[in-house]
Design a protein around this nucleic acid. Structure first.
Lengths: 159, 159
DNA sequence: CTTATAATATCAAGCAACTTGATATTGCAT
DNA sequence: ATGCAATATCAAGTTGCTTGATATTATAAG
Protein backbone atom coordinates (compact mmCIF):
# COMPACT_ATOMS: atom_id res chain seq x y z
CA UNK A 1 0.00 0.00 0.00
CA UNK A 2 1.29 3.40 -0.92
CA UNK A 3 2.06 5.68 1.93
CA UNK A 4 0.45 8.69 0.41
CA UNK A 5 -1.70 9.85 -2.42
CA UNK A 6 1.26 11.96 -3.41
CA UNK A 7 3.38 8.89 -3.79
CA UNK A 8 4.63 7.67 -7.15
CA UNK A 9 3.14 4.26 -6.63
CA UNK A 10 -0.41 5.55 -6.65
CA UNK A 11 -1.54 5.69 -10.22
CA UNK A 12 -4.36 7.98 -11.25
CA UNK A 13 -6.45 6.84 -14.13
CA UNK A 14 -7.50 9.50 -16.57
CA UNK A 15 -11.11 8.47 -16.15
CA UNK A 16 -11.20 8.44 -12.36
CA UNK A 17 -12.33 11.46 -10.41
CA UNK A 18 -9.39 13.07 -8.76
CA UNK A 19 -9.14 12.31 -5.05
CA UNK A 20 -10.18 15.10 -2.75
CA UNK A 21 -6.90 16.26 -1.32
CA UNK A 22 -6.75 19.74 0.06
CA UNK A 23 -4.64 22.24 -1.81
CA UNK A 24 -3.19 23.48 1.45
CA UNK A 25 -2.09 19.94 2.24
CA UNK A 26 -0.40 19.54 -1.14
CA UNK A 27 1.29 22.90 -0.77
CA UNK A 28 2.58 21.92 2.65
CA UNK A 29 4.00 18.65 1.44
CA UNK A 30 5.45 20.13 -1.71
CA UNK A 31 7.12 22.88 0.27
CA UNK A 32 8.58 20.34 2.61
CA UNK A 33 10.01 18.30 -0.25
CA UNK A 34 11.34 21.38 -2.02
CA UNK A 35 13.05 22.61 1.13
CA UNK A 36 14.69 19.26 1.73
CA UNK A 37 15.96 19.22 -1.82
CA UNK A 38 17.28 22.76 -1.68
CA UNK A 39 18.95 21.95 1.60
CA UNK A 40 20.79 19.09 -0.06
CA UNK A 41 22.16 21.36 -2.75
CA UNK A 42 23.17 24.29 -0.60
CA UNK A 43 24.36 22.72 2.63
CA UNK A 44 27.87 22.17 1.18
CA UNK A 45 28.11 25.95 1.08
CA UNK A 46 27.18 26.25 4.73
CA UNK A 47 23.91 27.88 3.81
CA UNK A 48 20.48 27.14 5.25
CA UNK A 49 17.33 27.30 3.15
CA UNK A 50 16.25 30.39 5.03
CA UNK A 51 19.57 32.10 4.36
CA UNK A 52 19.53 31.09 0.72
CA UNK A 53 16.03 32.42 0.25
CA UNK A 54 17.03 35.72 1.79
CA UNK A 55 20.04 36.01 -0.50
CA UNK A 56 17.78 35.23 -3.41
CA UNK A 57 15.32 37.98 -2.50
CA UNK A 58 18.20 40.43 -2.19
CA UNK A 59 19.50 39.50 -5.61
CA UNK A 60 16.16 40.47 -7.09
CA UNK A 61 15.87 43.66 -5.11
CA UNK A 62 18.99 45.05 -3.49
CA UNK A 63 18.92 47.66 -0.76
CA UNK A 64 15.94 46.31 1.13
CA UNK A 65 15.82 46.90 4.86
CA UNK A 66 15.59 44.32 7.58
CA UNK A 67 11.97 45.26 8.15
CA UNK A 68 11.10 44.93 4.49
CA UNK A 69 12.80 41.57 4.20
CA UNK A 70 10.93 40.41 7.29
CA UNK A 71 7.60 41.44 5.84
CA UNK A 72 8.36 39.70 2.56
CA UNK A 73 9.19 36.52 4.40
CA UNK A 74 6.17 36.77 6.72
CA UNK A 75 8.39 36.61 9.79
CA UNK A 76 9.14 39.05 12.57
CA UNK A 77 11.89 41.65 12.22
CA UNK A 78 13.77 39.90 14.99
CA UNK A 79 13.77 36.62 13.09
CA UNK A 80 15.04 38.33 9.97
CA UNK A 81 17.65 40.21 11.93
CA UNK A 82 19.09 36.91 13.05
CA UNK A 83 19.25 35.64 9.50
CA UNK A 84 20.97 38.83 8.37
CA UNK A 85 23.44 38.64 11.22
CA UNK A 86 24.45 35.17 10.09
CA UNK A 87 24.78 36.27 6.48
CA UNK A 88 26.77 39.34 7.45
CA UNK A 89 29.07 37.26 9.60
CA UNK A 90 29.64 34.95 6.65
CA UNK A 91 30.51 37.95 4.51
CA UNK A 92 27.64 37.38 2.10
CA UNK A 93 25.81 40.68 2.75
CA UNK A 94 26.68 44.16 3.89
CA UNK A 95 24.58 46.81 5.56
CA UNK A 96 24.68 50.45 4.49
CA UNK A 97 23.01 53.52 5.92
CA UNK A 98 19.89 54.66 4.13
CA UNK A 99 20.24 57.76 1.99
CA UNK A 100 17.63 59.81 3.85
CA UNK A 101 16.66 57.88 6.95
CA UNK A 102 19.06 57.68 9.85
CA UNK A 103 17.56 54.52 11.19
CA UNK A 104 17.13 52.26 8.20
CA UNK A 105 19.92 50.02 6.96
CA UNK A 106 20.01 48.90 3.35
CA UNK A 107 21.13 45.35 2.78
CA UNK A 108 23.17 44.40 -0.26
CA UNK A 109 24.85 41.26 -1.47
CA UNK A 110 28.62 41.24 -1.40
CA UNK A 111 30.55 39.87 -4.36
CA UNK A 112 31.08 36.71 -2.36
CA UNK A 113 27.38 36.56 -1.70
CA UNK A 114 26.61 36.86 -5.38
CA UNK A 115 29.08 34.13 -6.20
CA UNK A 116 27.74 31.68 -3.65
CA UNK A 117 24.18 32.48 -4.65
CA UNK A 118 24.90 31.88 -8.33
CA UNK A 119 26.18 28.40 -7.65
CA UNK A 120 23.21 27.51 -5.49
CA UNK A 121 20.81 29.07 -7.96
CA UNK A 122 22.03 26.76 -10.69
CA UNK A 123 21.20 23.72 -8.60
CA UNK A 124 17.83 25.10 -7.57
CA UNK A 125 16.99 25.98 -11.13
CA UNK A 126 17.75 22.42 -12.18
CA UNK A 127 15.42 21.23 -9.45
CA UNK A 128 12.69 23.52 -10.73
CA UNK A 129 13.06 22.11 -14.20
CA UNK A 130 12.84 18.60 -12.81
CA UNK A 131 9.84 19.56 -10.75
CA UNK A 132 8.04 21.03 -13.73
CA UNK A 133 9.04 18.36 -16.16
CA UNK A 134 6.19 17.85 -18.58
CA UNK A 135 4.52 21.13 -17.73
CA UNK A 136 4.59 23.48 -20.69
CA UNK A 137 5.33 27.18 -20.57
CA UNK A 138 1.74 28.36 -20.64
CA UNK A 139 0.78 26.03 -17.83
CA UNK A 140 3.77 27.13 -15.77
CA UNK A 141 2.76 30.75 -16.12
CA UNK A 142 -0.83 29.93 -15.29
CA UNK A 143 0.33 27.96 -12.24
CA UNK A 144 2.42 30.84 -11.01
CA UNK A 145 -0.34 33.30 -11.56
CA UNK A 146 -2.91 31.26 -9.67
CA UNK A 147 -0.59 30.59 -6.75
CA UNK A 148 0.36 34.25 -6.47
CA UNK A 149 -3.34 34.94 -6.50
CA UNK A 150 -3.73 32.52 -3.60
CA UNK A 151 -1.15 34.40 -1.56
CA UNK A 152 -2.92 37.62 -2.26
CA UNK A 153 -6.35 36.22 -1.56
CA UNK A 154 -5.16 35.27 1.89
CA UNK A 155 -4.01 38.80 2.47
CA UNK A 156 -0.39 37.75 2.36
CA UNK A 157 0.58 39.66 5.45
CA UNK A 158 1.67 39.23 9.00
CA UNK A 159 -0.94 38.44 11.62
CA UNK B 1 7.01 50.69 -3.02
CA UNK B 2 5.44 47.32 -2.50
CA UNK B 3 7.31 44.94 -0.30
CA UNK B 4 6.91 41.96 -2.54
CA UNK B 5 5.76 40.89 -5.93
CA UNK B 6 3.26 38.78 -4.07
CA UNK B 7 1.80 41.84 -2.45
CA UNK B 8 -1.68 43.12 -3.26
CA UNK B 9 -0.38 46.54 -4.12
CA UNK B 10 1.56 45.31 -7.12
CA UNK B 11 -0.78 45.27 -10.05
CA UNK B 12 -0.09 43.05 -13.02
CA UNK B 13 -1.30 44.25 -16.33
CA UNK B 14 -2.72 41.65 -18.63
CA UNK B 15 -0.37 42.71 -21.36
CA UNK B 16 2.83 42.69 -19.33
CA UNK B 17 5.08 39.65 -19.25
CA UNK B 18 4.77 37.96 -15.93
CA UNK B 19 7.70 38.60 -13.60
CA UNK B 20 10.13 35.74 -13.25
CA UNK B 21 9.48 34.51 -9.75
CA UNK B 22 10.50 30.97 -8.94
CA UNK B 23 7.74 28.51 -8.30
CA UNK B 24 9.64 27.17 -5.30
CA UNK B 25 9.69 30.69 -3.86
CA UNK B 26 5.97 31.13 -4.33
CA UNK B 27 5.28 27.74 -2.81
CA UNK B 28 7.42 28.64 0.18
CA UNK B 29 5.65 31.91 0.76
CA UNK B 30 2.21 30.48 0.17
CA UNK B 31 2.86 27.66 2.59
CA UNK B 32 4.03 30.14 5.17
CA UNK B 33 0.87 32.21 4.82
CA UNK B 34 -1.37 29.16 4.85
CA UNK B 35 0.27 27.84 8.00
CA UNK B 36 -0.12 31.15 9.76
CA UNK B 37 -3.77 31.25 8.85
CA UNK B 38 -4.44 27.69 9.91
CA UNK B 39 -2.64 28.41 13.15
CA UNK B 40 -5.01 31.29 13.82
CA UNK B 41 -8.06 29.07 13.41
CA UNK B 42 -6.85 26.08 15.37
CA UNK B 43 -4.82 27.55 18.21
CA UNK B 44 -7.99 28.10 20.31
CA UNK B 45 -8.26 24.31 20.38
CA UNK B 46 -4.71 23.95 21.64
CA UNK B 47 -3.66 22.38 18.36
CA UNK B 48 -0.56 23.14 16.36
CA UNK B 49 -0.51 23.05 12.57
CA UNK B 50 1.63 19.94 12.66
CA UNK B 51 -0.81 18.22 15.00
CA UNK B 52 -3.80 19.29 12.95
CA UNK B 53 -2.24 18.01 9.75
CA UNK B 54 -1.57 14.68 11.36
CA UNK B 55 -5.16 14.40 12.57
CA UNK B 56 -6.28 15.27 9.07
CA UNK B 57 -4.19 12.55 7.50
CA UNK B 58 -5.58 10.04 9.99
CA UNK B 59 -9.14 11.04 9.18
CA UNK B 60 -8.51 10.16 5.56
CA UNK B 61 -6.75 6.93 6.34
CA UNK B 62 -7.15 5.45 9.79
CA UNK B 63 -4.91 2.77 11.20
CA UNK B 64 -1.66 4.13 9.82
CA UNK B 65 1.49 3.44 11.79
CA UNK B 66 3.90 5.94 13.21
CA UNK B 67 6.40 5.04 10.50
CA UNK B 68 3.85 5.48 7.72
CA UNK B 69 2.72 8.83 9.05
CA UNK B 70 6.34 9.93 9.27
CA UNK B 71 6.98 8.96 5.67
CA UNK B 72 3.87 10.79 4.50
CA UNK B 73 4.99 13.91 6.30
CA UNK B 74 8.59 13.64 5.10
CA UNK B 75 9.88 13.68 8.67
CA UNK B 76 11.73 11.16 10.79
CA UNK B 77 9.84 8.55 12.80
CA UNK B 78 11.11 10.20 15.96
CA UNK B 79 9.60 13.52 14.99
CA UNK B 80 6.28 11.88 14.23
CA UNK B 81 6.40 9.92 17.46
CA UNK B 82 6.59 13.17 19.35
CA UNK B 83 3.56 14.52 17.53
CA UNK B 84 1.63 11.35 18.24
CA UNK B 85 2.63 11.44 21.89
CA UNK B 86 1.15 14.92 22.18
CA UNK B 87 -2.04 13.91 20.40
CA UNK B 88 -2.40 10.78 22.54
CA UNK B 89 -1.87 12.80 25.68
CA UNK B 90 -4.61 15.17 24.55
CA UNK B 91 -6.91 12.22 23.99
CA UNK B 92 -7.31 12.87 20.29
CA UNK B 93 -5.78 9.59 19.05
CA UNK B 94 -5.35 6.07 20.33
CA UNK B 95 -2.83 3.39 19.47
CA UNK B 96 -3.82 -0.21 18.85
CA UNK B 97 -1.75 -3.30 18.20
CA UNK B 98 -1.51 -4.33 14.58
CA UNK B 99 -3.50 -7.38 13.58
CA UNK B 100 -0.55 -9.45 12.40
CA UNK B 101 2.58 -7.59 13.37
CA UNK B 102 3.71 -7.55 16.95
CA UNK B 103 5.67 -4.37 16.58
CA UNK B 104 3.45 -2.02 14.62
CA UNK B 105 0.90 0.21 16.29
CA UNK B 106 -2.14 1.41 14.38
CA UNK B 107 -3.18 4.97 15.07
CA UNK B 108 -6.84 5.98 15.09
CA UNK B 109 -8.73 9.12 15.88
CA UNK B 110 -10.78 9.10 19.06
CA UNK B 111 -14.30 10.50 19.02
CA UNK B 112 -12.90 13.61 20.63
CA UNK B 113 -10.25 13.78 17.96
CA UNK B 114 -12.89 13.57 15.25
CA UNK B 115 -14.92 16.30 16.91
CA UNK B 116 -12.03 18.71 17.27
CA UNK B 117 -10.87 17.97 13.76
CA UNK B 118 -14.31 18.65 12.29
CA UNK B 119 -14.41 22.10 13.81
CA UNK B 120 -10.94 22.97 12.59
CA UNK B 121 -11.70 21.51 9.17
CA UNK B 122 -14.60 23.87 8.72
CA UNK B 123 -12.36 26.86 9.27
CA UNK B 124 -9.63 25.52 7.03
CA UNK B 125 -12.15 24.74 4.32
CA UNK B 126 -13.38 28.31 4.44
CA UNK B 127 -9.80 29.46 4.06
CA UNK B 128 -9.34 27.24 1.04
CA UNK B 129 -12.42 28.74 -0.56
CA UNK B 130 -11.11 32.20 0.13
CA UNK B 131 -7.73 31.25 -1.23
CA UNK B 132 -9.23 29.86 -4.42
CA UNK B 133 -11.77 32.58 -4.89
CA UNK B 134 -12.20 33.18 -8.59
CA UNK B 135 -10.57 29.91 -9.59
CA UNK B 136 -13.08 27.62 -11.26
CA UNK B 137 -13.42 23.91 -10.65
CA UNK B 138 -11.47 22.76 -13.68
CA UNK B 139 -8.59 25.05 -12.86
CA UNK B 140 -8.58 23.85 -9.26
CA UNK B 141 -8.35 20.28 -10.35
CA UNK B 142 -5.64 21.11 -12.85
CA UNK B 143 -3.74 22.98 -10.15
CA UNK B 144 -3.92 20.05 -7.78
CA UNK B 145 -2.86 17.63 -10.45
CA UNK B 146 0.16 19.67 -11.47
CA UNK B 147 1.29 20.25 -7.91
CA UNK B 148 0.95 16.57 -7.04
CA UNK B 149 2.99 15.92 -10.13
CA UNK B 150 5.64 18.27 -8.79
CA UNK B 151 5.86 16.31 -5.54
CA UNK B 152 6.25 13.14 -7.49
CA UNK B 153 8.75 14.58 -9.91
CA UNK B 154 10.95 15.42 -6.94
CA UNK B 155 10.75 11.86 -5.75
CA UNK B 156 8.69 12.89 -2.77
CA UNK B 157 10.72 10.87 -0.33
CA UNK B 158 13.02 11.19 2.63
CA UNK B 159 16.65 12.02 1.95
C1' DC C 1 9.31 74.15 21.10
C1' DT C 2 7.16 69.73 23.26
C1' DT C 3 4.65 65.51 23.03
C1' DA C 4 2.99 61.45 20.83
C1' DT C 5 3.18 57.96 17.52
C1' DA C 6 4.83 54.78 14.10
C1' DA C 7 8.56 52.51 12.21
C1' DT C 8 13.33 51.13 12.52
C1' DA C 9 17.27 47.93 14.21
C1' DT C 10 18.79 44.80 17.50
C1' DC C 11 19.58 42.39 22.08
C1' DA C 12 17.53 38.64 25.02
C1' DA C 13 15.18 34.61 26.18
C1' DG C 14 12.07 31.03 25.10
C1' DC C 15 9.49 27.55 22.25
C1' DA C 16 8.06 24.38 18.55
C1' DA C 17 9.42 21.28 15.15
C1' DC C 18 12.54 19.21 13.56
C1' DT C 19 17.27 16.37 13.60
C1' DT C 20 20.84 12.69 14.96
C1' DG C 21 22.03 9.02 18.21
C1' DA C 22 20.63 5.04 20.46
C1' DT C 23 18.13 0.90 21.87
C1' DA C 24 15.03 -3.02 21.97
C1' DT C 25 11.80 -5.80 19.46
C1' DT C 26 9.41 -8.02 15.66
C1' DG C 27 9.29 -10.63 11.15
C1' DC C 28 11.58 -12.68 7.43
C1' DA C 29 15.37 -14.75 4.84
C1' DT C 30 19.33 -17.64 4.70
C1' DA D 1 21.00 -19.85 14.61
C1' DT D 2 22.38 -15.54 12.38
C1' DG D 3 21.64 -11.41 9.84
C1' DC D 4 18.93 -7.78 8.22
C1' DA D 5 15.19 -4.51 7.67
C1' DA D 6 11.54 -2.26 9.77
C1' DT D 7 9.18 -0.91 13.97
C1' DA D 8 8.43 2.16 18.24
C1' DT D 9 10.35 5.18 21.41
C1' DC D 10 13.75 7.43 24.71
C1' DA D 11 17.40 11.12 24.70
C1' DA D 12 19.73 15.17 23.50
C1' DG D 13 20.66 18.77 20.35
C1' DT D 14 19.77 22.27 16.50
C1' DT D 15 17.27 25.47 13.79
C1' DG D 16 14.01 28.90 12.86
C1' DC D 17 10.87 30.97 14.59
C1' DT D 18 8.31 33.70 18.59
C1' DT D 19 7.51 37.27 22.39
C1' DG D 20 9.57 40.83 25.30
C1' DA D 21 12.28 44.77 25.53
C1' DT D 22 14.90 48.92 24.33
C1' DA D 23 16.76 52.85 21.92
C1' DT D 24 16.53 55.74 17.92
C1' DT D 25 14.74 58.10 13.91
C1' DA D 26 11.06 60.80 11.41
C1' DT D 27 6.71 62.93 11.32
C1' DA D 28 2.53 65.14 12.92
C1' DA D 29 0.02 67.99 15.99
C1' DG D 30 -0.51 71.46 19.50
Amino acid sequence: MADSLLDQSVKFSQTEPFPSVRLSYIIGRLDRVISQRIDEYISPYDLSVTQYTTLSVLSHRSGLSNAQLARRAYVTPQAMNQVLAQLAHAGLIERESHATHGRILCINLTEQGKTVLAVCDAAVEAMEQQMLNGVDFAERESLRKVLIGCVRALGGGLR
